[in-house]
């Protein structure tokens, strides 16, 4: 465990909790892509099946459980409790266009052809593109509320910190996992355009809206 990973994990946790709190306190999930949240729930479920097979640390186990619970709580708020506020007309990204190719790729490119390993690989690939419905929704409506922007910034920050963590681990321990690194870089690149908008607009107190 190094400081980059710890801060990355905490940034990830902050993003998840911030989104939950926003939906809960505004009693609304307007502007949030339910599809992205469903995909994240699927990501955590398929990745953390090793909760049943291996124990790494109390930190590791508790973070996994918290991520899974928060992901399902978010999905519940969007699709059940505050369903009336869900903006499904704008959440039109076809999630199957992500899940099917990613599933195929997980079968073809993985560390080991076993069920748990394929599901882990699937979750890594899926996480790298799971934010696309949310980014698509923002590009469709042309704007995002500032909390939604902070959420995306924390998620992107988590990815960027993980890349620094991998560089650090490569030089200090000779550790690297090519699947995680390639997928992680793809995921971080997806946030780049958003980062630019965030820094130029949200930080200067404006709502994030796309240039017409």
């Amino acid at each position: 465990m190094n400081v980059f990973r710890l801060v990355g994990d905490l940034s990830h946790l902050l993003a998840i909790i911030m989104l939950l709190k926003k939906i809960w306190s505004s009693r609304s999930c307007a502007g949030i892509s339910g599809k992205s949240q469903l995909l994240f729930a699927l990501v955590f479920t398929t990745r953390y099946l090793d909760l049943f097979t291996s124990f790494i640390s109390v930190y590791n186990t508790s973070m996994k459980v918290i991520y899974i619970l928060c992901a399902y709580a978010t999905v519940y708020l969007i699709y059940v409790k505050f369903k009336a506020t869900y903006d499904h007309n704008h959440d039109t990204f076809r999630a199957e266009f992500l899940v099917v190719p990613v599933g195929g790729l997980a079968f073809l490119v993985n560390h080991d052809f076993t069920p748990l390993e394929i599901l882990w690989t699937f979750s890594i690939y899926l996480e790298s593109v799971a934010i696309m419905p949310q980014l698509f929704m923002i590009s469709k409506t042309g704007e995002a509320e500032s909390i939604t922007s902070h959420y995306l910034f924390c998620l992107g920050g988590y990815r960027a910190l993980y890349i620094i963590n991998w560089l650090y681990r490569f030089y200090s321990e000779g550790f690297f996992d090519l699947i995680a690194i390639v997928a992680g870089c793809v995921q971080t690149i997806l946030y780049c355009d958003f980062f630019y908008l965030y820094i130029t607009k949200v930080i200067y107190g404006q709502k994030l809206s796309l240039p017409a």
Binding site: R5, H12, D50, S54, S57, M63, H111, E117, W120, F176
Partner: peptide, 10 residues
Amino acid sequence: YRQPHEKDEL
């Protein structure tokens, strides 16, 4: 190269 079971990252 990491063994598949050694997944310590989240």
